[in-house]
C-alpha cells in the first residue's frame, strides 16, 4: 500500500467483513511517529493463524502483509483479537512520521458506504478532529453521494490543515 489511508482501508474492510457494526479509528500525529488504532466489534479471529492461510484460501494474508510492510518501513503493528465474547479486534500501528497519510477522506467515504457506525479521531498536539457517524444521522442517509463527497473533503481539509502530507 502506498500510504496510510490505504492501510486503514484494508484493515477496516477486514473489520466490516468480520461483521463489525462499530468501527473506531484514531490517528495520532506525534513528533516522530504516527500512531493508528483501529477497534471493531466484529467476530474476531485467532491471532495465531495470522498469515498462515487456511482451507478457505488466503485468509489472513492481508494482515500479515500489512504487518511486514509496517516493519519494513521502520514501524510496527500489534493485533489483539478474541473470538469469544464479541470483544472484537484492536489493531495498533506505529509508523515513522514521514509516511504520508494519503487520501484519508476517500477511505472514510468508502467505509461510510457500508452503513456501520464510524468514529474517527485525528489528533495532533492539542488539536482534535472528530467525526462520528452516529452524531450525523439526520434527514438523509449518509450514503447519499453529496454527503459522502463533503465528508471526504472535510477529512482531507483537516489532514492538510494538520500538515501531514495528504496526497490528493
Amino acid at each position: 500500500m502506498r500510504d496510510l489511508s490505504l492501510v486503514i482501508l484494508e484493515l477496516a474492510c477486514n473489520s466490516l467483513d468480520a461483521g463489525a457494526k462499530n468501527l473506531f479509528l484514531r490517528l495520532e500525529y506525534g513528533e516522530r511517529t504516527t500512531r493508528i488504532n483501529i477497534d471493531d466489534d466484529g467476530c474476531g479471529f485467532d491471532v495465531s493463524t495470522l498469515g498462515k492461510g487456511s482451507s478457505k484460501g488466503s485468509t489472513g494474508l492481508g494482515l500479515a502483509l500489512t504487518m511486514r510492510e509496517a516493519q519494513e518501513c521502520g514501524g510496527k503493528m500489534a493485533v489483539l483479537s478474541q473470538t469469544e465474547g464479541k470483544r472484537g479486534t484492536r489493531i495498533e500501528l506505529e509508523y515513522p512520521k514521514d509516511v504520508p497519510t494519503g487520501d484519508l477522506g476517500a477511505t472514510v467515504a468508502t467505509l461510510i458506504c457500508d452503513e456501520c457506525r464510524l468514529r474517527l479521531d485525528i489528533v495532533k498536539g492539542e488539536d482534535i478532529f472528530s467525526l462520528d457517524t452516529a452524531e450525523l444521522e439526520g434527514e438523509w442517509s449518509l450514503q447519499t453521494p453529496f454527503i459522502l463527497r463533503d465528508i471526504r473533503q472535510n477529512v482531507n481539509k483537516t489532514i492538510q490543515h494538520i500538515g501531514v502530507g495528504a496526497l490528493l
Partner: peptide, 23 residues
Amino acid sequence: MKKTIEDINQIRAAMQSQIILRD
C-alpha cells in the same frame, strides 16, 4: 477546529432543495 458535525449539518441544510438520489 472541532467543527465537523456543524459543518456537515450546514451542508445538509444548504442542499435541502437538491434531489435525494436514493429516494
